[in-house]
Amino acid sequence: MRDDLQLISDWIPADASLLDLGCGDGTLLAHLKQHKQIRGYGLEINQDNLAACFEKGVNVLEQDLDEGLGNFQNHRFDYVVMTQALQAVLRPDQILNEMLRVGREAIITFPNFGHWRVRAYLGLKGRMPVSSALPYEWYNTPNIHLCTVQDFETHCRKSNIRILERQVINRHHRSGLLARLWPNLFGEIAIYRVTV
């Protein structure tokens, strides 16, 4: 399992209820179901991912995040998780609000656009950054709303979203000293646990 998923699963207590937005092949849900008896659903639109979830026996609903979460009641879940999808939705601010409406807490991960390598790519090469965390070209990227650690935290402050926990890791999914000291410069993937 990916290290960021391992980190997230460490944050989630046993028997919690969970909604996983863009749940992929259901790895996180299957892991949490098996090891922590969590109860939950994933949302996904990719056909191969849906089939993988069906086979794993995790609950998955074909639902487009850009159409909102209007079908879920307030505080239906303990946790709403979205890994590496915030930057790909039409309105990250609205989905964040929706996550905190249907869940008591939200866990979000995104690629940090403030990482020094990204800055250097744009600053020195003068071109849109391409990296292992951001493998697309500017014209075909699904990542339409990239942000930095600082952008995200500023948005949280403005929107009265409380940050309960933050982990910033590098591309090897390790949390080094530099990333802890200067997350916006040395963190490649940011992981947050937030609430209102």
Binding site: R39, Y41, L50, C53, F54, N59, V60, L61, E62, Q63, N71, F72, Q73, R76
Partner: peptide, 16 residues
């Protein structure tokens, strides 16, 4: 049907 099942906490998967 799906929303009713989610509301009731049943195990459900849905494909369109």
């Amino acid at each position: 049907i799906v929303n009713g099942l989610v509301h009731a906490g049943r195990d459900v998967s849905y494909a369109e």
